[in-house]
Amino acid sequence: MQFFNEFTQTIINGVAIGCIYGMVALGFVLIYKSTEVINFAQGELLMLGAFIAYSLITMLHFPYWLALITTILAMGIVGALLERVVLRPLVGEPAYAIVIVTIGISYFIKSVVSMIPGWGTDTYGFKTPFTDKYVRSGELVVSWEYISIIAIALLLIAAVFLFFRYSRMGTAMRATSQNQLAAVYMGISVTRVFSLTWTIAAALGGIGGILLAPITFVHMNMGFIGLKAVPAAVLGGFTSPPGAIVGGLIIGITESLAGVYLPDGWKDIAAWIILIGVLIIRPQGLFGIQEKKKV
C-alpha cells in the first residue's frame, strides 16, 4: 500500500510536469511546422512569462486568474513583436541562420531579465489559489497544485487543437506549413500566419512558465526546462501536435519515476536515454511520418 501510494503520487507529479513539457513542446512544434526552425528561445519565453506573472501577482496584486490572462496576452505580444522585428526579415534565409538568431534571442532575453530591477538573479515564488491545498483519499495525498496544472494545461491544449481544426486561420496555418507557395496562391497571408504562430507559441511558453512557477520557483535559469521539452517534441515526431503532448507526458513520467526509484543522476538523463533509444529504433519519432525524398 505504501508502495502503491508513493507510485501513484510519482505518476501524478510526472503527468503534471509532463503537461508543462508538452505545452512547451507544442510551442516548438508550432514554430517548426510553420517555419522549419527550432526556436531555442522557447525556454526563455517560459521564464519571461513566469517573471511577468510573478510581478503581476506580488507587486501589482492582481488576482491569480487575471494575472494568468494578462500574462498570456503580454506573452502573445512579445511573440508577435519578436516575429515582426527579428524573424520576418529572415524569411527565406537558410534555416540554420534563423536557428542561430533564436539562440541570440535567448541569450538576450535571459540577460535582460537579469538586469531588470526587482527581477535579477534571485529566486522568487508566488501564491496561487491552489497553494497548500490537498485532496486526500485514504493514504493518498495529492496537491491541488498538480491537479490544477494538469487541468489548465489540458484545457489550453484542447483550445489550441480546436482552433487548428475548425477555425479559418487554423486551417490557413496548417496549409502554410505544408506548402507556402500554394498557400500564397490561395490568398493566405503567410506573414500573418507566421506572426500568429509566434504569438501562440510565445503565449504557450508563458502559460508553461506560470504553471511551472509553483513547482520550481521563478528564477533566471528556468529556461533550461525548454531543453527538456525538446526530447518531448522529438519523441512525438516534431511535426505532430498530439505527439508533442504524449511525448511530454512520457518524458515527465519517466523523469519522475527515475527521480524516485533510480540512483542520483539518472533523473536528468532518463529523458535523453529514452529519446536516443526510440530514435535508433524509429528514426522518425513515435508519431512522425517517415520522409523519403522523391526522385
Binding site: V86, P89, L90, E93, P94, A97, I98, I100, V101, I103, G104, I105, S106, Y107, F108, I109, K110, S111, V112, V113, S114, M115
Partner: peptide, 23 residues
C-alpha cells in the same frame, strides 16, 4: 555595473550579424 550587459550585447550582436549577413 550590470553583469548581464555582456551576454545581452552578445546575444544582440549575434542576432544583428545574422540579420545583415545570413551567410
Amino acid at each position: 555595473d550590470q553583469t548581464g550587459l555582456q551576454p545581452a550585447l552578445f546575444g544582440l550582436l549575434i542576432v544583428l550579424v545574422m540579420l545583415f549577413e545570413p551567410m
